[in-house]
Design a binder for these strands. Structure first.
Length: 154
DNA sequence: GCCAACGTTGGC
DNA sequence: GCCAACGTTGGC
């Protein structure tokens, strides 16, 4: 089982939007970056867990935990000319983009902000904290995962 | 709103 | 295949 971190802008889609879905499950559409797509389509498995991260907001940070509920399948928003994720180069015959389903597991007892993560000596190697990183889906090591879950309880 | 970092596109 | 131009991300 692997661990991940998935970013979303709370103004567009925050953790409460996921909670509001039927079965607290939703598809994670709109990934238009090859590296992030490859993580989803090649490595994510049902049952993997991921931190739900709020980005581009007043307090960026981890706010909850989700798990992968369905492995990668066609991201249909790429075929929809009215969608902001429309990509004419992706067709049902030759799809370019994929998405997974995620299911809400729980909110953290308190958000763990980017600022707090940065201050942790054991997390200095984390992908999220590397400079210039803009990937919206990132792997998290088990050691990092366990550390952050422990940090939550402090 | 600014800007650094980075990915993608397209001309050559 | 190179690389300049452009677009996007995301913290601040």
């Amino acid at each position: 089982m692997k661990y991940w971190l998935m970013k979303s802008e709370p103004d567009a889609y925050g953790i409460n939007d996921l909670i509001a879905q039927p079965a607290r499950t939703d598809h994670w559409d709109g990934i238009r970056n090859y590296q992030a797509r490859n993580f989803m389509s090649k490595e994510m498995k049902v049952g993997d867990q991921a931190f739900f991260y709020h980005s581009s907001c007043a307090e960026p940070g981890i706010v909850g935990i989700v798990k992968i509920a369905r492995e990668a399948y066609l991201d249909f928003t790429a075929f929809d000319s009215k969608s902001k994720y429309y990509d004419p180069k992706s067709t049902p015959e030759k799809p370019r983009w994929f998405m997974v389903d995620v299911k809400f597991v729980r909110k953290l007892k308190r958000p763990i902000t980017l600022q707090e993560l940065k201050a942790q000596e054991p997390l200095q190697e984390m992908r999220l904290l590397q400079r210039g990183n803009r990937l919206s889906i990132l792997p998290v090591s088990k050691r990092e995962w366990d550390y952050i879950v422990k940090l939550e309880k402090r």
